[in-house]
Structures are given as structure tokens and as C-alpha cells.
Design a protein around this nucleic acid. Sequence first.
DNA 1: GTTGAAAAACGCGGAGT
DNA 2: ACTCCGCGTTTTTCAAC
Lengths: 159, 159
Amino acid sequence: MPHDMKLDAIDCRILALLQVDATLPVAEIATQVGLSSTPCWRRIQRLRASGVIQRQVALVDPRRVNLPVTVFVTIRTRDHSEAWFERFRTSITLIPEVVEFFRMSGDIDYLLRVVVPDIAAYDRVYKRLIADNALSDVSSSFAMEEIKFTTALPLGYVP
Amino acid sequence: MPHDMKLDAIDCRILALLQVDATLPVAEIATQVGLSSTPCWRRIQRLRASGVIQRQVALVDPRRVNLPVTVFVTIRTRDHSEAWFERFRTSITLIPEVVEFFRMSGDIDYLLRVVVPDIAAYDRVYKRLIADNALSDVSSSFAMEEIKFTTALPLGYVP
DNA sequence: GTTGAAAAACGCGGAGT
DNA sequence: ACTCCGCGTTTTTCAAC
């Protein structure tokens, strides 16, 4: 399982298919990429073992599990020490409502995407955020509509 | 396949497992939730057919397919007509580098998450954004580090 | 809802080209 | 590296409880 695995055009086509529907039988992927099932299966195994395919998951409709509200939270901080960051990182990562967490360049230090059933629930997450960490500025923006959300990455850039 | 399906505690535990690893054999899910495989399998089928489980996908590591840069793009517009929005929506949705696209409340009208190999590639996406649509203000924030990213929703809020 | 079991589909691996 | 073929497992369905 080399970590610097090279991907050819067929690997990309396999990934493109699995990114959209991971339940496709190997045999069907094989025919779509012009292979028989054994080498196709081996390629998929290699993609898994090498970590190109991180994992295989079921995507749940947020509205069907009472999570219609998503909030983007921008955070500025004064403390930029390593020790503070590690504490902050683990504190945020443990909050299940936080589904995305990025360190940013520019005037905003961190950006979170939070998924909750309503504004009251968001307020509880917000209080947990500011209680656990010394944050100098926290700003919340509410999403009104999810127009596009995909886990399929654009695979046209593979070297 | 009713669209207003109610989920009980066992359904939630099944979803929690499948959100993390959709390759688990039905038999193992069954034992983990304290069921035998037949009713467990039926529940999973119901969750799929009713759309609670939208689909099953492979998650690809962005760095391994040459996509280490993510950019958040905030957009303000002057034109708020329905016709303009429909044009804008389809134009943006067709860009594969745009993986998330939200309509927002507050002073920002739209927020995009864009995934690209480098800043030069982002510039080409940016030019496509402003060429296809009359946007009054576009601002780009670059992510330095992805600290957390999960597709697993918090399932503690199901009614 | 449970068990058990059979049919079909698929994953997986060996032998050969 | 791929094709072909077949074994073993898992899924899926169907009984009866």
C-alpha cells in the first residue's frame, strides 16, 4: 500500500463511479471501464488500501432526521499559541453538530459548518463553543437553502 | 415508501453505523442493534426506499487526487429576480469544482465551497463564476487546513 | 418480531494466456 | 496485466413460528 500511488485514467473512471454510487457491483464497474472483474476488483482494493478511497458511507438526508438548519460560524481568536490550538481543536472536533471545521487564511481564523434542528439548538452549540474556549469574535451566518451538496470531487486534475 | 416515515431508536442506531461504514455486513449490524438479520435488512431497505438514506458513496481523499486547496466564496448580488436566480443556480451547479452551494441569510447572499489543485485553477473557476453571472461582490477565503470533515450527521435530535 | 434455510448474486482468488 | 472459471460468502427471499 504505497502512499504515493499513481492513478491512471482507468483508476479515475472507477473513482468517478464509486463517488456517485458505491453499491455498484464490481462486474458492472468493470464493463463500464472496459475491464473484466478481477483486475477491476484489484484496482479497487489498491485504491482502498492506499487510502485514496478513505471509506464508504451512507449519506443521510438532513431534513429526514430533523436537521434542517445549517449554520456557518466564523471565528477570530487572539491566542495563537500551539497549546491553545490543540485544546481548541479537540474541543470542537468532539461536537457532533460540527460537521466541517477549517483553519483559514485572511481575517477569519476558523470556519465551522454546524448542523442543527433549529435556532434554539444552535444557541446551545454556540454557548458550548464560547464556554470551552477563549474566542475574541464569533459570527454566525444561517443558510436558507442547500442548493448543492456533493461528496464527489472533480477528478479532472489527476497528474 | 412513505416520505413521512417515523424513525425509532433502532433505525437511528442502524443509520449511525451506516453513516460511518456502509460496508458492514447486515448480519453484523443486526447483532450490534440487537436484531436478527431479516428485520434489520428490512429496516435498511425501508430507509433506502423512503429516502432517509439518500445514497451510498465512496469518500475520496482530496490530497490524493491533487485537490489540496479549498476555497470558500461569498457572493453578493444586486439582481434578486427569480429568473436570474434560476440561471445562476444551474450555472453554478454545473461547475464540478463547486462541491457546496448555499443560499444564505444576512449580508451574504450565497456561499460556495470550491475544491481545486492550486490557486491558478481557482482563478479559472473564479473567472467562470463572474463571467457567467452578473455578481455585485465576490470574496474568496482560502482554507489552510481541514481539521474536521464528516458526512455523519448528529442523530440525537430525531423526534 | 424470530429462526432457519434455500436461491441468487457477488466477492475473491487461482491457473492460464 | 488481463481473461476465464469456480469456490465460498453474503445478500436476499421465502417459508413457518
